[in-house]
Simulated scan of single mutants.
Amino acid sequence: MQEKEILEQNDIIDISMDSNADESAANSTNLNDSLAQDSELEKAQAELTEQKDKYLRLMAEFDNFRRRTAKERLELMQTAGKDIVVSLLDVLDDCDRAEKQLATSTDIALQKEGIQLVFNKIRSTLQAKGVKAMESINTDFDVEKHEAITEIPAPTQAMQGKVLDEVMKGYYLNDKIVRFAKVVVGK
C-alpha cells in the first residue's frame, strides 16, 4: 500500500512538473508573440512612413506639374497668334508701299493693280493659315452658318428661304466657323 501511495505521489509531482513546464513554455510563447508583434508593428510603421514619404513626393510632383502646365498654357496663349501676325507683316509692308505709291503716282490703273496685288496677298496668306470664306449667296438659309439681318420679299418662288445678299462674309478656320455670315434672306 505504501508503494501505491509513493507511486501516486510521484505521478502528482510529475504532473505538477509537467504543468510548470507548460506554464514556462507558455510564458516563453507569450514573450515570442510579443516580440513578433513588436517587430510587425515596427515593420508596419516603417511601411507607413515610406508610404507617407511617397505620397508627399507625389503631391509635390503633381503640384509642380500643375504649375508648369499653367505657365506653359499662359505662354502659349500669349504667343498663339504669333505665326499669323508674322505672316501678315509682309502684307502690312505691301500696304505701306502701296500707300507711298498712291501718294506719288497719278496713274489710276497702276494704283488699282497694286492694291489688287495687296488684296490677293492677304487672301492667300490667310488661306495658307486655314482661313476660308463661306459661300452663302443663293444657298439655303442655315441657322448654323448664317445670321439673318433682315428678310425681304423673294423675287421668285424658288428664292424663298435662300440667302439673297451677304452683308458680311462668314469665315471658316480649319473647317470650324470663326465668323457667321450676316445675310439677307428671301421670304
Rank of each mutant, 00 (worst) to 15 (best):
M1T: 07
Q2Y: 11
E3P: 02
K4P: 00
L7C: 05
N10R: 10
N10I: 11
I12L: 14
D18V: 04
N20Q: 15
A21K: 09
N27D: 15
N30D: 09
N32D: 15
S34F: 03
Q37W: 05
D38L: 11
S39K: 06
Q45S: 05
A46W: 01
K54V: 04
L56W: 02
M59V: 12
R66D: 07
E72C: 00
M77V: 00
D83E: 09
D94W: 00
D94I: 00
A98Y: 02
Q101F: 13
T104I: 15
S105G: 03
T106I: 09
D107F: 09
K112G: 06
I115N: 09
L117H: 13
L117I: 12
L117S: 13
F119D: 07
F119V: 11
K121G: 12
K121P: 10
I122P: 02
R123V: 04
K132F: 01
A133K: 12
E135G: 09
E135N: 14
T139N: 08
T139R: 06
D140T: 06
V143W: 01
E144W: 01
E151S: 07
I152S: 03
A154C: 13
T156N: 11
Q157L: 11
A158G: 04
Q160C: 08
Q160S: 07
V163W: 08
E166H: 07
K169T: 12
Y171C: 08
D175H: 03
K176T: 14
R179E: 15
F180L: 10
V183A: 10
V183E: 12
V184F: 01
